[in-house]
Design a protein around this nucleic acid. Structure first.
Length: 451
DNA sequence: AGCCTTTGACCAGCG
DNA sequence: TCGCTGGTCAAAGGC
């Protein structure tokens, strides 16, 4: 089975990587990287270099795709082609709340980088995390999203025409050659280094439709999964993890897929906690049903926060692996403290946060992880900047300013990193950068059932 | 005691 | 109108 052997090969690559480095080591390695040499920017391409497709060709497709989409501005008014929020080297043109841009942007600008931004303002209120493969228990969909690779490639915003979330090409990133668009659904393959599922957060964070993808925090390292992200008519965002080999061929047979799941079951058998409540929010299950459209039973959860309209549907395979999550509506409250009841113990979060920094073993992994951390830091800083705002309040676009990746000098990086760790260990950071406003609950499924 | 899950019943939308 | 389907309710019981 080709897919299995691919994954085995990947795992071997990971196993060959250096043992867990310390954050300092990571940072040191990171700082020794030549940003301008393209090592970093080519990382994703390098790690998908075993793909048969021509990378530039695919990128061209992506560009074409984007150009075909009549973009809208964040305010919903007509805008020139190629929404500026998607454009590299143009974030300054999109400043709103802060004429100088976010701290991340300022830092990046200072370092000579431009930061493409995600415009999440058009993202709607219902999120689907849908996986044709089962998400291993304890492996959060958000963790998948939080892969540095995903982050780095996550120039994502909903299609102006369909509302589906798609990922646009970004100048400094390398689209995996097997990236695909299909009905506004973009698939790509995060693959940035060793993943240790046992070290990942058990459970998952909400990947909120109003949440800048850059704001999604990483509790785990990158995965060899790929994702399909889609957003439909301001209602649903679909994030579709795939196995690495499924990326090579979307015609992946169901048999192969089942085998993949089986393999993953074995790989991730150590992760046993699949409680969907562990996304940081508290959920109450109010129903379960076997629906015809899915071979798996569907569970219905409500956010237990008073007056919070958020619901989610979770489908699990027989072995408890999550196969689909559909988020509906938006949280109108901050993320609750992490260690309450079903929340993750603070100490566990600490460890996980540290693992984020320690796990990536390759240079590229270091880079992505470090950059991710930087981006996360900016997210946090942005969040701090809006503290005190009514939880139900602000336009989402306020968070759309959050930068994804920034380049920093050594001091900044170290400072950011250590601050990040400190915040994590103090349990003071909110993992959710979203305070949504769109309460629309209509929804429509975008991706046909995986079966 | 409070909050959770479970589970059968009920309801609404749709063809 | 009827049957199917998906979503929700609410009682019961567990932790």
């Amino acid at each position: 089975m080709a897919g299995t052997s691919d994954r085995v090969s990947l795992m071997e690559d990971w196993m060959a990587m250096p043992p867990t480095p310390s954050p300092r080591t990571l940072m040191s390695s990171f700082l020794n990287e030549d940003f301008g040499s393209g090592q970093f920017s080519n990382f994703f391409g390098e790690h998908v270099s075993n793909k048969p497709h021509d990378q530039s060709e695919k990128r061209g497709e992506l560009v074409d795709f984007r150009e075909q989409v009549p973009a809208q501005s964040a305010t919903g008014t007509a805008a020139p082609q190629n929404d500026i929020s998607l454009q590299p080297n143009s974030f300054n043109a999109n400043q709103k709340s802060n004429p100088q841009g976010s701290l991340a942007e300022r830092r990046a600008s200072r370092a000579g980088f431009s930061i493409p931004k995600i415009d999440t303002s058009r993202v709607g209120s219902s999120t689907v995390i849908r996986s044709p493969i089962a998400i291993p228990p304890g492996l959060s969909p958000t963790t998948l999203l939080e892969s540095p690779v995903f982050l780095y490639n996550a120039m994502a915003q909903p299609s102006p025409t369909t509302g589906k979330l798609f990922v646009a090409p970004e100048a400094n990133s390398t689209m995996p050659p097997d990236s695909t668009f299909s009905n506004d659904v973009f698939s790509f393959q995060p693959h940035s280094g060793p993943a240790s599922y046992s070290n990942m957060e058990k459970g998952y964070n909400v990947c909120h439709q109003n949440q800048s993808l850059s704001n999604i925090h990483q509790q785990g390292s990158s995965l060899q999964s790929s994702f399909t992200a889609a957003k439909d008519s301001a209602d649903e965002t679909i994030v579709k993890p795939k196995t690495s080999d499924s990326v090579f061929s979307d015609n992946h047979s169901s048999e192969e897929q089942e085998d993949d799941e089986g393999d993953q079951n074995e790989e991730y058998s150590s992760a046993t906690n699949s409680n969907p409540a562990e996304d940081g929010y508290n959920w109450r299950k109010y129903g379960q049903k076997q629906v015809k459209s899915s071979e798996h039973p569907r569970s219905y959860y409500k956010c237990t926060h008073p007056d919070c309209p958020v619901k989610k549907k979770v489908e699990r395979s027989q072995d408890g692996q999550i196969t689909e999550i559909v988020y509906k509506s938006s949280h109108n409250h901050p993320l609750p403290p992490p260690n309450r009841r079903s929340g993750i113990p603070l100490s566990q979060i600490n460890d996980q946060q540290v693992h984020v920094l320690e796990k990536p073993g390759s240079h590229a992994g270091l880079n992505t992880a470090s950059l991710w951390e930087n981006g996360k830091s900016e997210c946090i800083q942005d969040m701090q900047g809006v503290e005190g705002r009514p939880a139900a309040g602000p336009p989402v676009s306020a968070y759309g300013d959050t930068s994804i990746i920034e380049s920093q000098d050594a001091a900044d990086v170290s400072s950011t990193l250590s601050n990040e760790i400190d915040r994590a260990t103090q349990g003071t950071i909110s993992l959710d950068c979203d305070v949504g406003e769109d309460e629309t609950e209509s929804k429509r499924r975008l991706v046909s059932p995986s079966t």
